[in-house]
């Protein structure tokens, strides 16, 4: 059965990072993978920035029209239909942050609805170190907005709490508390906890309610947004 993963979440929560990690993991297992860059809001730091790397892994990448042309008004490409029409093992949608970004998904709600039962995962990527996601209230109100605009229901949280180059296991611990509360209130399970392998191992070694931890997902960092990468590669 085709597996369709939709990643939504606040700006800077790590959606693109996770999209790459999910895709590379699937490709390494020999699966046929398609990645869709559906961020129609933010011009910078997008999946297509890693286009060469994605193609090297023999993953199909779909990008908005006019991407990387310094044009700010992107438009959805017709090729998005290939996600539903063609025979992939894994399809991953990387959507823009916040409700405005999630709007891009709404147009495909009939296609999503036609997918076989159990093949769609809509994952809300959360980094509680980001300003608009630091409390259960903020998280839930953001999630409600994204659900409404995308015409989808979130099926699981990903705790991806980090402080970029200053990340520590404490970030995951704090994220756990806030997301657990949001999960209790909304009934949406936590499906993954993700982070740098060493930090994740430290976090996973401790006793916690597994309902709010989910599967551990060690990730490699491809999308640097820090100063050092900027000076090398620019925006």
């Amino acid at each position: 059965m085709k597996e369709v993963i939709v990643l939504i979440g606040n700006y800077g929560s790590g959606k693109t990072e996770l999209a790459l990690n999910f895709a590379f993991q699937a490709a390494n297992e020999g699966k046929k993978v398609e990645l869709l860059d559906l961020d129609m809001v933010n011009t910078y730091f997008r999946l297509t920035d890693r286009g060469n790397l994605i193609k090297m892994k023999e993953i199909r990448l779909v990008s908005p029209n006019f991407v990387h042309s310094s044009v700010e008004t992107l438009s959805l490409p017709a090729e998005v239909a290939s996600a539903f029409a063609l025979d992939w093992d894994t399809v991953i949608f990387d959507v823009g942050g916040d409700p405005a970004g999630a709007t891009a998904l709404g147009r495909y709600h009939e296609d999503f609805a036609a997918l076989p039962e159990g093949s769609l995962k809509v994952l809300n990527v959360v980094n509680t170190r980001r300003p608009m996601a630091g409390t259960p209230d903020k998280l839930l109100s953001l999630m409600e907005g994204m659900e409404r605009h995308s015409r989808q229901k979130v099926t699981g949280f990903i705790n991806n709490t980090n402080l970029a180059r200053m990340a520590s296991a404490d970030d995951l611990r704090d994220g756990y508390e806030i997301i657990a509360e949001a999960s209790r209130r909304s009934g949406v399970p936590v499906l993954y906890t993700s982070g740098r392998p060493d930090l994740l191992a430290e976090f996973m070694a401790e006793e916690r309610d597994p309902r709010f931890v989910g599967a551990p997902m060690p990730i490699e960092t491809y999308m640097h947004r820090d100063w050092e990468t900027f000076t090398r590669e620019g925006l």
């Binding site: 910078y44 170190r129 402080l163 970029a164 180059r165 947004r225 820090d226 900027f230 620019g234 925006l235």
Partner: peptide
Amino acid sequence: DGMICQMMEP
């Protein structure tokens, strides 16, 4: 400039 405004730092 665009660099300061678009980059993310703790």
